[in-house]
Amino acid sequence: MEALVASAVGVLTAAGIFLILRRRTFPVILGLSLLTYAVNVFLFATGRLAVNAPAVLNKYEQVPYTDPLPQALVLTAIVISFGMTAVIVMIALGAYLSAKDDHIDMAARDSVDGAGEDA
């Protein structure tokens, strides 16, 4: 199970970063979303994995509980990341509609970044 979660985190991170490094706003937003999943699962997994052990107290019998703290942190992280995504989407949308251009890099100094990057 751990291998599955870890590999999923790895793949999500790699895909997220790859898309963040694209040059248009929309892929970057997608990349941030993927990276958000990866980070949330990562944080959640620091509480170690457990099956059938939710952190809801059982009054009647002794049962194992999973670590509740990372869950609480991740819960707010999920909601906050929605807020963040919404702000970025809005900025991207406003920028595109105002300038009719959805490049994330400033065009004037593109040459500084190294020649031949514009295909």
Binding site: G10, G16, R22
Partner: peptide, 28 residues
């Protein structure tokens, strides 16, 4: 993006992904 740039980005992403995945695997 040029192919070279895509390969470079892919390499960076794969390294970062391997690192993150490896870290959480070790942690778990």
């Amino acid at each position: 993006s040029s192919a070279a740039r895509r390969w470079r980005d892919a390499a960076i992403s794969v390294v970062a992904g391997l690192g993150t995945g490896g870290l959480i695997y070790a942690l778990m």
